[in-house]
């Protein structure tokens, strides 16, 4: 599992800036709305700058909560209610950029645009 936290971020942004990240395919069907050929750090900044539509987030979140239940003690699938906005956006984009290693989450993030991610971050960060 290749996990990225804190200070490694800067390092990774530089590394991926050099290697011109996505060698993997986005936008298989034209539904994909993101422009992923920007460095990860820039993508994080862009999503965090969006207010995030909480109503939209509430709808999108219904998909997440099938697996990410609140009463998820002792689970291989973590609780995501109440995750801080910054952490949530960063983690989700790491899936999108294939820096986090879970194929379910990578596929979900591939089909999720920036606006949708901002909406989800707003929704989950406000949840108890």
């Amino acid at each position: 599992m290749f996990r990225v936290q804190g200070i490694d971020r800067i390092w990774l942004c530089i590394a991926f800036g050099i290697f011109l990240i996505p060698t993997f395919s986005f936008a298989e069907s034209g539904v994909e709305k993101t422009t992923p050929d920007m460095p990860l750090g820039e993508a994080i900044g862009q999503v965090l700058a969006m207010p995030g539509d909480a109503d939209y987030g509430a709808y999108l979140a219904t998909e997440c909560v099938t697996c990410h239940q609140r009463q998820a003690a002792n689970h291989a699938i973590p609780v995501i209610d109440g995750l801080p906005r910054e952490y949530f956006v960063e983690a989700m984009l790491e899936y999108k950029y294939r820096l986090r290693d879970n194929s379910v989450m990578q596929a979900i993030m591939t089909s999720l645009g920036m606006e949708e991610l901002a909406a989800l971050a707003t929704y989950f960060s406000a949840k108890e």
């Binding site: 298989e28 069907s29 034209g30 539904v31 994909e32 379910v104 596929a107 979900i108 591939t110 089909s111």
Partner: peptide, 22 residues
Amino acid sequence: IKVGAQYGNVDGAIASTSSFIS
């Protein structure tokens, strides 16, 4: 093992927008 996909409305049909398989 697992297989799965995301889907959306693509030109009036439910179509896969991304997928994965073990």
